[in-house]
């Protein structure tokens, strides 16, 4: 099964993430750091720095992968993705406003603000597209406009705020520098239930794929399904942005990779997208930490660098 292969790959990347970094550890050292709470150097590096960062990468990747899959399902548009439809930008704007207006704010509140931003973004998307019923094409067009608008607001805010200058590169390009257990504790209670609800929603999403009339004929409330899906997208994207900034391409490419592996059935496609997204972000973060060590590349650059050629390959050579 492809799902098992992805899970295996994720475990391998997890192992590498724990062994490799600015300081290379041997496997025995890494395991000692993982198991023994001896306060030694290995413990600090493995348990306090690398493991939480890997888990953050998995949560961010899964959240973005599922967001992308949900958006592609409800819009019936293969180009849908939280970045392209403006949900990321709305969450990012909320995060930027939080950082600039309340410079000493707790990360918990920052995450709340960011998730609210994501929900507002999803809400604006829905209300703009609403006209008696939700039209997929209107949803897509509105999303692109919202993305451009909020994106411009973020850049404007960053340009006018000098205190934020040093953080803006990591924020705009996306990255997991400095993310730790606290980030995982904040977003896991959002991401895990949201992914579970999304998986529970998959039979209705399958019906939606047949077209609104047929879906309605099968007894699926199409608008309510879209509403729930968009709320999930807002919460998941907001959670991802609050930890990693604006990471592009994961939401777009993960469902496509998954589709080529497990096909169109949402019941398999959606969990596989979560795994693919997690694998992509974790791999990108590993590479980001290694390329110019001890400095780091912004991880978002690498998700695009890995994701874009793969998407091109799928477009050109598959199906």
């Amino acid at each position: 099964m492809w799902t098992l292969a992805l899970l295996g790959a994720l475990v391998v990347v997890g192992m590498l993430s724990i062994i490799m970094g600015a300081i290379m550890l041997g496997l025995p050292d890494a395991i000692r750091g993982l198991i023994h709470d001896n306060g030694e150097f290995e413990r600090l590096v493995v348990w306090d720095l690398r493991l939480p960062r890997f888990l953050d990468a998995v949560l961010v990747g899964a959240a973005l992968g599922v967001s992308g899959a949900l958006l592609q399902a409800v819009t019936r548009n293969p180009l849908a993705d939280p970045t392209i439809l403006g949900v990321s930008a709305a969450a990012g704007l909320a995060l930027a406003v939080g950082l600039v207006l309340f410079p000493g704010i707790d990360r918990e509140w920052l995450a709340v603000i960011t998730i609210l931003g994501g929900l507002v973004g999803a809400g604006v998307l829905l209300s703009m597209a609403w006209q008696g019923a939700i039209s997929s094409i209107r949803l897509t067009l509105a999303g692109i406009a919202i993305s451009a608008f909020f994106g411009a607001a973020i850049v404007g805010l960053l340009a006018s705020s000098t205190t934020f200058l040093e953080l803006s590169l990591g924020f705009l390009a996306g990255g997991l520098y400095g993310s730790d257990w606290r980030d995982a504790q904040i977003v896991a209670p959002i991401v895990i239930p949201a992914v579970a609800i999304a998986i529970a929603l998959t039979p209705r999403l399958n019906a939606l794929a047949l077209g609104d009339e047929l879906a309605a004929g099968l007894g699926v409330l199409t608008d309510r399904t879209r509403l729930i899906a968009l709320i999930l997208v807002g919460a998941l994207t907001g959670a991802a942005v609050s930890v990693a900034g604006l990471v592009s391409f994961v939401g777009l490419v993960s469902p496509h990779v998954s589709r080529s592996l497990v096909g169109e059935d949402q019941r398999y496609l959606l969990p596989t997208s979560a795994l693919t997204g997690a694998l992509l972000v974790a791999t990108a973060d590993l590479v980001a930490r290694l390329v110019i060590r001890p400095s780091e590349l912004p991880m978002g650059i690498l998700t695009a660098a890995v994701g874009a050629p793969f998407l091109l390959y799928l477009v050109r050579f598959r199906r």
Binding site: A22, I23, F41, L49, L167, P294
Partner: peptide
């Protein structure tokens, strides 16, 4: 590592007894 993203792993390995940071760069929480 870079001044804006100091690498915690490398710092930990050096096991320093003093870190000198820059008030204009590292003041942000």
């Amino acid at each position: 590592g870079s001044a804006y993203q100091p690498n915690q792993e490398v710092i930990a390995q050096l096991n320093p007894d003093l870190i000198v940071a820059d008030a204009t760069i590292h003041a942000a929480p």
